[in-house]
Design a protein around this nucleic acid. Structure first.
Length: 1135
RNA sequence: GAAAAUAUAGCUUAAUGGUAAUAGCAAAUACUUGAUAAGUAUUAGGUUGUCAGUUCAAGUCUGGCUAUUUUCACCA
């Protein structure tokens, strides 16, 4: 007894997924898919570690589907694809979560709760939702190794990070320096940008702003400026909202491409005549148009409005290098003091910077390197030096004259606080150094704990000198295959171009400690690169007596204990010893968590302490994929470390997927409540439809508007159709006991339709492969969809239905007729091959359903030895089976059929009513040949008896021609419009000339002194839009004319078909089996008796009747109506 | 403030610079019926976000603007 193909009541995708999930688990299919490829070429994939302290969302499903499908595809292609999962466990989000949980703030750590306890809580909390993540991973069918993930807080992982850091240290890429960071003097602490983005930190406040006047120094490099405009002295105007930074001023920045004006005017406070430089575009901000060239002579202190005149226009670039007098000189900011900090510094110069705008201010930016990130950068670049004349409490240091000791903002809520900024402004006014002083309202960040304004302040931090390899990073980035390419060149490329050194320092608690120990005086430091090294150094420290042994423990035990967890506070208990016996303590910093994940290629393998060979085989990655938000996160740190450590890319292809928005295009947020719960979605629709929808609806990098309706459509349209097709196959294959035990029938011996669908199938394989290879899964999925819906189901199966359910006729000896038998087997084999191949093609995208389909098929035939589609090789197309001529022929058949059906529809003639013939105007012998090849299909599909061609040269039909813009446009250029018009208006004789040879379009060419323009059949498109006496339908150059004449013969045949249809309905209503034979008894007096007798044989064959009897009276009768005739009859099932 | 992506029918989506812009869903109408919780046909639905430019020819190339989304910055 043959096994049966499972048949189902209805499609239940979640059920299928469930079943297959269990199957995978039981037979370790994932493991097998890797183990069986041992020794094969590997395809390297890196999993970007998610943080498990938050719930997974629907956007995780899309990026994971993408990762999974690539890995599954490559596995099926024969590569070994290892997929180690990972967890990102350090960092601020974790810490903030824990702070919230414990109801504490950063301040309390180490006080209300010990660091040890706090970190233990972090360690526990960080994997809080790991179960949920694992569940999602399983449910959505994401194959990744969950049992041996890398976890960034594990000692081995940290050890590799330390190794990386030491490598960088050895190369001189790890250094300590200052950086400008948000700082709260009131709280005495630096703030992370995250803290700065707390709600309510940015407030509108009014500050005293000053436009200060910097007096230019006349020397060799500036002589031209003075002499060109015949002035004795001039000032640069620069605006600031923080006058307290003015004593620390070291430069003025102008925009290199901004036009500046030298303006003659007066100082509104001192009324002295002055000449000032500011951006030309900003003149209206300070001067009224009507006062231009005003009366300079009569200006006095009573005149409110300043007369002014432009003396010269100067390009910003030309100003660079000019020196100016220091605005607020004091003991603390002399050149000597500056050079004590920065030897050879060249301050008090005009420099250029691209960040300068003419939006506000004067177009000249006061630059105090200590108090602004841009200023700092500009200062470094131009060697201005750096002055920090404000201490960490927020007050001026000693040596700033009368301002020393005063707070730059009211940080202490002093009763009689007077604003030092106002006093500075007053001083400038008196000294003829202020051009405009006013209150200015702007948005400024405040410390979220003290509510006091923050300042930007230089703080010590550790950096990685990424700028040292900037060019190399840019160069290597060009070798990376970015999907989409614009992210690589644009977002990422621009980022690289403007790269700054990587600030590694974080002053938190739960993270990888920076493994640098140094002596108190900073004279000696050591960077530790391994646990072994740490133990050796520790031993030395014990030996030197710097570390004191605890009672009751041996030194060895203590070393074990101290190195058992490389986190705070334990590492901070370790004191090492310098070469001359001084104690060395660890620097306070933790490192940026992005370093953790960026180093995963090395750390996940505990390289170089283990797995040296594995690492060699697993670096760089062939493929990674994450959300586009990782561009400057993980993608960057991976790349940076790859280049810094190994002078290599870390990944060859990277796909950055876009965002998932709600169906209205809004961002999903918990607050709005439009968040999609991935678990619910997977439960209702199953992972296959969900994945298919996510992949085929939009390219991964476009943002996706997530709409449940879309999944429903996928479920119904694609999976429903594919399921139906399978059900259809299973139904009849089970009846006929088809199990592919017969030898495969050669393609050449199968029917035209079989050859066609197999050709299309092979074309499909080719296109799907190409798309997968190019990381275009969206196109691959849509191709599969089109094939299943349009070609397989709607054309092949529909046209072939009869071949499956029609019993094989017998010959005289009561045996099956061999040819008919073969044809039926060919149909089964063809449909089987299509379904089987589809299961493999769709497997990467919808792994559960694909495996279900595969197993249902293969479970009966056993044609493949693998018990899962995912262990199979991806199908390989055969160029030999692809028949382009056949494919285009079939398109023709579909077009013609569709045209005929539309004509039938228009004239109300049912398909069941046969028609005699259809006329098609011919386009030549090839054209006719093509159609004749599919004539049988057209006739059957449309119930037409013959297809006739109207010869091309007949004068019966009217032809029209239209210009072929593509071919003519290139030749004619600007004459195109004229030619198109001319061609449209050609008469029939002229058209015939065009079609039969060449035609001169401009006979009067010599008169007009033109080139001759000849056109031929290639240059026009021919249509037929009129055939006298016929209803016609047109699509492109194809025209179909239907003969609607109904002869009595045709009518009778139509009647017979209608009759069959009615009887079939009765069979179905009575739930007869497909194979049940019947007897038919018809009431004698019915009007159509003659027709039924005439078509007796046809009718009996169709309805599986042995005979049709006519009787006077029929009991248990049914009454049917055919073409307005009532027929009373009785259908009896034969037993 | 800067950069990037996107914008085509009510929705989703296609279109090497070349005819009159492609399909599906939804809508309406009819048909079909041994794949039927399906299928087929027909109809309607479009100023291709907007304004310019390049071109014989623009949904497509260039520029400006607008909207949405993202990232970075918030600084004088």
């Amino acid at each position: 007894m043959n096994k049966k193909y499972p048949e189902y009541k209805q499609l239940n995708l979640p059920e299928i997924a469930n079943e297959i999930e269990h199957f995978w688990a039981e037979s370790s299919t994932f493991q097998k898919s890797i183990d069986e490829r041992e020794g094969h070429e590997s395809f390297v994939f890196y999993e970007g570690p998610p943080s498990a302290n938050g719930m997974p969302g629907i956007h995780h499903v899309i990026s994971r589907t993408l990762k999974d499908l690539v890995c599954r595809y490559k596995t099926m292609q024969g590569y070994q694809v290892k997929r180690k999962g990972g967890w990102d466990t350090h960092g601020l989000p974790v810490e903030l979560g824990v702070e919230k949980l414990l109801g504490i703030t950063k301040e309390d750590i180490g006080k209300k709760i010990s660091i040890e306890e706090y970190n233990a809580t972090c360690r526990r909390e960080v994997l809080k939702f790991k179960d949920k993540w694992d569940e999602l991973t399983r449910k959505m069918g994401y194959w990744v190794d969950l049992d041996h993930p890398y976890i960034t807080f594990e000692n081995n992982y940290i050890e590799t990070l330390w190794w990386c850091l030491k490598e960088l240290y050895k190369k001189g890429y790890l250094y300590e320096s200052v950086s400008i960071q948000p700082y709260s003097p009131a709280a005495g602490t630096g703030l992370s940008s995250h803290e700065l983005n707390q709600p309510g930190t940015y407030k509108d406040i009014k500050d005293t702003s000053v436009v200060a006047m910097f007096k230019a120094v006349k020397n060799d490099s500036s002589k031209w400026l003075f002499e060109d405009s015949k002035v004795e002295e001039l000032y640069f105007l620069a605006w600031t909202t923080t006058p307290w930074t003015l004593p620390s001023n070291l430069g003025l920045t102008v925009g290199p491409r901004i036009q500046y004006a030298l303006v003659q005017t007066f100082n509104p406070y001192t009324h002295l005549p002055i000449n000032v430089i500011l951006a030309e575009g900003l003149i209206p901000k300070y001067f009224k148009k009507e006062n231009e060239n005003g009366a300079v002579e009569t200006y006095n202190s009573e005149v409110k409005e300043l007369p002014w005149r432009i003396l010269a226009l100067i390009n910003g670039e030309k100003l660079a290098g000019i020196k100016y007098e220091q605005l607020l000189p004091s003991a603390a900011n002399t050149l000597e003091k500056i050079r004590e900090i920065t030897p050879n510094a060249e301050p008090f110069r005009i420099i250029t910077g691209d960040f300068v705008t003419t939006e506000d201010g004067t177009g000249i930016v006061h630059t105090a390197p200590a108090f602004g990130a841009d200023d700092f950068k500009a200062g470094q670049k131009n060697n201005l030096g750096i002055l920090t004349l404000v201490d960490k409490e927020g007050k001026f240091v000693e040596g700033v004259g009368e301002f020393s000791g005063r707070f730059v903002k009211d940080y202490k809520d002093e009763k009689n606080y007077t604003d030092v900024n106002v006093d500075i402004s007053v001083k400038l006014k008196k000294e003829n150094r202020a051009f405009k002083v006013e209150k200015y309202e702007h948005n400024y960040p405040h410390c979220w704990r003290t509510d006091k304004p923050i300042i930007y302040y230089p703080l010590d931090a550790w950096f990685i000198k990424t700028t040292a390899v900037k060019d190399r990073m840019i160069e290597l980035n060009k070798t990376i295959n970015w999907k989409p390419a614009s992210t690589g060149t644009g977002r990422f490329g621009n980022w690289l171009e403007n790269m700054v050194d990587w600030n590694l320092s974080r002053s938190r608690f739960w993270g990888t400690p920076l493994p640098v120990w140094r002596t108190g005086d900073g004279e000696e430091e050591i960077c530790i690169g391994s646990i072994e090294e740490l133990r050796t150094e520790l031993q030395r420290s014990f030996d030197a007596g710097v570390m004191k042994p605890h009672e009751g423990k041996t030194v060895a035990e203590q070393i074990d204990e101290l190195t058992s967890d490389l986190h705070k506070p334990f590492v901070d208990k370790i004191i090492l010893v310098s070469s001359n016996g001084m104690p060395m303590e660890r620097v306070a910093d933790l490192i940026d968590v992005w370093f953790d994940s960026g180093a995963m290629p090395y750390a996940q393998l505990h390289y170089p302490f283990e797995n040296k060979k594995e690492f060699k085989d697993n670096f760089p990655a062939d493929f990674i994929a994450e959300g586009v938000d990782q561009t400057r996160g993980w993608f960057y740190t991976l790349h940076a470390l790859g280049v810094l450590l190994f002078d290599s890319v870390a990944y060859k292809t990277v796909v950055s997927n876009g965002l998932v928005l709600d169906k209205n295009g809004n961002k999903m947020s918990k607050r709005v409540g439009n968040v999609i719960d991935p678990f619910e979605t997977l439960d209702i629709f199953g992972p296959d439809a969900t994945r298919w929808y996510l992949i085929t609806n939009a390219s991964p990098w476009d943002s996706l508007k997530f709409d449940i309706e879309g999944i429903k459509e996928v479920q119904r349209k694609f999976f429903g159709t594919l399921y139906n097709t399978y059900q259809f196959f299973a139904l009849y294959a089970n009846l006929d006991q088809f199990s592919y035990k017969e030898g495969s029938i050669e393609i050449g011996h199968r029917s035209e339709l079989d050859q066609w669908i197999l050709s299309e199938l092979n074309s499909l394989i080719k296109r799907v492969m190409e798309n997968f290879d190019q990381y275009e899964p969206t196109h691959a999925g849509r191709e599969i969809e089109y094939f299943v819906n349009e070609q397989l189901s709607n054309w092949y199966v529909r046209l072939c239905r009869r071949r499956f359910w029609k019993p094989v006729p017998l010959n005289q000896n009561g045996e099956n007729i061999i040819e008919e038998m073969q044809d039926k087997i060919a149909a089964y084999q063809t449909l089987y091959e299509c379904l089987d191949t589809i299961s493999a093609l769709m497997a990467p995208i919808s792994p559960f359903f694909a495996d279900w389909l595969y197993k249902n098929l293969n479970g009966v035939t056993g044609r493949q030895k693998e018990n899962s589609v995912h262990l199979r090789k991806f199908p390989i197309y055969s160029e030999a089976i692809i028949n382009h001529a056949l494919e285009s022929r079939m398109v023709m058949a579909q077009d013609i059929s569709s045209l005929i059906l539309s004509l039938r529809k228009k004239s109300g003639v049912k398909v069941r009513q046969p028609l005699q013939k259809v006329l098609i105007p011919s386009h030549g012998a090839d054209f006719e040949q093509q159609i004749l090849g599919v004539a049988k299909i057209i006739k059957a599909e449309t119930n037409i008896k013959e297809i006739d061609f109207l010869p091309a040269d007949n004068d019966f039909i009217k032809k029209r021609v239209k210009a072929n813009f593509k071919s003519l446009g290139k030749k004619l250029g600007s004459k195109m419009k004229w030619a198109a018009e001319k061609i449209n208006n050609l008469n029939e004789i002229e058209i015939d000339q065009v079609l039969s040879g060449t035609f001169l379009l401009n006979p009067e060419f010599s008169k007009l002194k033109e080139e001759e323009i000849y056109i031929n059949i290639e240059d026009v498109e021919v249509t037929t839009n009129e055939i006298p006496g016929y209803e016609i339908a047109v699509k492109g150059s194809l025209t179909v004319a239907l003969d609607l004449t109904l002869t009595p013969e045709l009518e009778k045949e139509g009647f017979a078909r209608e009759f069959v249809n009615r009887v079939q309905n009765i069979r179905k209503d009575r739930n007869f089996e497909l194979t049940d034979k019947i007897d038919l008894i018809i009431e004698d007096k019915n009007p159509a008796k003659d027709i039924i007798i005439e078509f007796n044989e046809y009718i009996c064959a169709e309805i599986l009747a042995e005979k049709i009897d006519f009787q006077k009276q029929v009991s248990e009768a049914s009454i049917i109506e055919v073409n307005n005739d009532q027929i009373t009859l009785q259908v009896n099932k034969k037993t």
